[in-house]
């Protein structure tokens, strides 16, 4: 099944969700943040996309984007790529941990390094850096860090 067919089927099934079709090397489906959990639920339960491979945050000049790569261990095909935009000021998206528990650490990583919050996440704390670190290093405007401590 091609990505275009998947998109057409989803668009017919959810007329209330405004979905976008993004053509490229890997074709993606653009979802609005508030519709993400509903669509994800459908993808897992009815379309057998039981395996969420990776969750990535990208810092574009005008927006943040989170990319979800979905595969199925039961049937051929994939990936179905969902893209969600978040605004630059105080980015916030719904969490998909309740649908794919694997999202837990991946969303924590996106929060830690990219600074996108996920509402409904059970434990949204920093994972790679320490608690109390300021800033989100993978943002393009991250200034770099400095140390006071040098062994003399």
């Amino acid at each position: 099944m091609t990505a275009k067919e998947t998109f057409d089927r989803l668009a017919a099934k959810f007329p209330q969700f405004p979905l976008g079709y993004l053509e490229g090397k890997d074709t993606a489906i653009l979802v609005k943040g508030e519709n993400l959990v509903g669509l994800a639920q459908h993808m897992r339960d009815d379309e057998e996309y039981d395996y969420c491979s990776s969750i990535t945050g990208v810092d574009y000049p005008d927006r943040f984007e989170v990319v979800y790569h979905l595969y199925s261990t039961k049937k051929e095909g994939g990936p179905v790529i969902l893209k969600v935009h978040a605004e630059r000021e105080n980015p916030m998206l719904p969490s998909v941990v309740s649908i794919w528990p694997t999202a837990n650490w991946q969303e924590r990583e996106v929060w830690d390094l990219m600074g996108i919050r996920f509402s409904g996440h059970p434990n949204l704390t920093r994972i790679l850096m320490w608690e109390g670190f300021e800033g989100h290093p993978l943002r393009k405007d991250f200034p770099g860090s400095e140390d006071e401590y040098i062994f003399g």
């Binding site: 300021e134 140390d147 006071e148």
Partner: peptide, 8 residues
Amino acid sequence: YGPRGLVL
């Protein structure tokens, strides 16, 4: 650990 790196 400090907010920007290691501190004394």
